[in-house]
Design a binder for these strands. Structure first.
Lengths: 368, 368
DNA sequence: GGCCGTTTAGCAAACGTTTGCCAAAAATCG
DNA sequence: CGATTTTTGGCAAACGTTTGCTAAACGGCC
């Protein structure tokens, strides 16, 4: 007779492996082996066990297995906090791509939001150090820290997506931002543009630096002075990119020497910028060419359709997962590799030749 | 002497509760009580334990705890599959809202994609029956099923978000779609509109029915015939809503009796529709009024700004989480309640009086 | 029938917690 | 100061798997 000294799981619903074993007339260990290690067990018994399992609707308890083998089958994605500055348009695609790849590898996806508060950082570290997750994909340039613990110190395999974190030893999947902007800017120069406006994202953002540098390099290569480009935005105070575009529009309107081409760090800000300046009376692309970043589907349907430098996020997500899987299988293998995926400029109508400059272009302002 | 017969966790990184206990000079059980049950332990010992834990960087193993107590602290969100038909714009907001609420309750968020394939359904059921998740929030109208097992049969607390699933005993958080469309349509009627186009989402979608009925009811109330509204779209073949809008635009152009007002099931399709018809030469809102659904931030920056019926998704997510928490705490309490949250029409420029009808309106077609 | 090679049964020890129960200590009271 | 009540600490058994080991069962072969 069994003495029930403690009473933990009063509501433990499902069938156990022991039930399957009983029904199939085999030992528990055989069931375990049949379900996990193929080949370790006779095909006939295996079929019997499978049938029994199906009949009972048996599902192995993931926590028990995880505890025993010391591994989980969950990967977390750490999203930048409060949030999604420019990339809100593209987040669902990222998630979908990553989730699909993980599924194929038998993993599940957990979301962690890196808000700027202590609680969220603690939660992330609890997941990392508490054995809940097996690996992480991070979409932010700073790693969470909380009282002594730091993600960096964890043994957790991590790969960085969109941001280049190879300098802190994280394998990173990025696009060739700088190159892409350089090319796009060069094209704009070839189209006659001589004055540029750059819409920046959050201060110090990795992409910002890269992209801005790309533009600057292209100007230098064309023999244009550095003053040919004006940088706008760069505040962290905005909830999302749209607001940056709105602010930039008024800034644009007040510039004494108005640029004829705009390069935006994200589609969000380009869309709102474009909307505002058009309502102020400028024509796109007649007065102003615009090109932005991310390749959000909605760009195709703005007025005019927005040229954007597409980040192939699905492909990138897949690659990030692959890298993570490698890291999981062989933790020490390979130092931080930077994988660069080519982004490509999708040319749409927002992109055209520079307007002819009237002699008094300084005072030119369209009538509404 | 300890015999090491099996060798499971070769790489077990972190400190254990036993280490904390040793460092603090107390028993393991005391540590456990100190960390979990406040008040069950002397304040002084507690401080000692906290210090020791922090010094070691100790994080409790979630799987061990979960196994012992028979509960996890993970909730999954089941997203409609291949996917995000119309709501892609709004998914990040939903996720963020839900994640924030869950965090406050000490839960983590796991993503499950309900693609239409067997693998994804199996994964979801593994999560549900394998004890990995403690509850689920579902954004789809059909529940996953896989060989014998069905989500419906699981003891898992589930709440439905956006879709009314109260008829299958799931607490549901929805907006008053029908009412909102009825009101919006009535307003359009009052503005002189007499012919409507309705852009539908995937066939049989709950929202579609509701919203379409709302429009029909408004027409009936105004004494207009049912033929006053034309229904377009409704195919499942499109990857996302944008394509529905494009297809609807050509359909619109070919209608002999052109509608003067358009009601779209999602912002996505409204945006692409609007873009297309404007490029064909129609003026919005002069020739055509448009109103859509979801309240995506981007609507504010379309040209013209798009009127949209906002679904307060953050609030809805929060409510869904609250309902789920109730269900978790008291599984049998309360049958399937339907919580209706008011959506509100955000009136923007895409919404205006009906154009004056020339006598030969049948042949009217703007010149480009 | 004896021998050998596969399979499977059975056992038991983990994995790292939580928790009921009892003993010990501390606090309170007469 | 001893007795009684309250609080706190420690022991050990679970939670549901996996896995190494040994021994037994089974089948085929000479």
């Amino acid at each position: 007779m069994k003495i029930n000294k403690d009473m933990p799981a009063e509501e433990h619903s499902g069938p156990l492996m022991a039930d399957v074993a009983r029904l199939a007339g085999v030992a528990i260990s055989t069931v375990s082996r049949a379900l996990a290690n193929p080949g370790r067990v006779n095909e006939k018994t295996r079929a019997k066990i499978d049938a029994a399992a199906k009949q009972l609707g048996y599902t192995p308890n993931a926590m028990a297995r995880g505890l025993r083998v010391g591994k989980s089958n969950v990967v977390m994605i750490i999203l930048p906090g409060s949030l999604y500055y420019g990339v809100s348009q593209v987040i669902p695609l990222v998630l979908q791509g990553i989730n699909r790849s993980l599924s194929q590898n038998g993993y599940h996806l957990m979301i962690a939001n890196l808000d700027r508060d202590e609680v969220s950082e603690r939660h992330i570290l609890d997941l990392a150090f508490g054995g809940t997750v097996r690996g992480a994909i991070i979409l932010s340039s700073d790693l969470p820290v909380d009282g002594g613990r730091s993600l960096k110190d964890s043994a957790l395999p991590i790969v960085s997506l969109l941001f280049d974190m190879s300098h802190v030893a994280l394998p990173s999947v990025v696009t060739n931002d700088r190159q892409a902007v350089r090319d796009a800017t060069a094209e704009l120069v070839a189209l006659g543009h001589r004055r540029f406006l750059y819409l920046a994202g959050p201060q110090g953002n990795y992409h910002d630096n890269e992209r801005y540098l790309g533009a600057v390099e292209a100007l230098a290569a064309a023999g244009l002075p550095e003053t040919a480009i004006v940088r706008s935005g760069g505040s962290l105070d905005y909830q999302h990119g749209f607001q940056i575009g709105v602010a930039a529009a008024t800034e644009f309107a007040n510039l004494p020497l108005r640029p004829t081409a705009v390069i935006a760090t994200s589609d969000d800000m380009a869309i709102s910028f474009m909307s505002c300046v058009q309502r102020m009376g400028w024509k796109i692309p007649a007065d102003l060419s615009i090109v932005s970043f991310d390749g959000a589907p909605v760009c195709e349907y703005s007025l005019p359709p927005l040229s954007t430098i597409e980040q192939p996020v699905e492909e990138m997500g897949q690659m990030a997962v692959n890298l993570l899987m490698e890291r999981i299988d062989a933790p020490e293998k390979g130092a931080a590799i930077r994988h660069v995926i080519a982004s490509k400029l999708i040319r749409r109508e927002s992109f055209g030749p520079a307007p002819l400059e009237p002699d008094d272009f300084r005072s030119v302002r369209p009538k509404i």
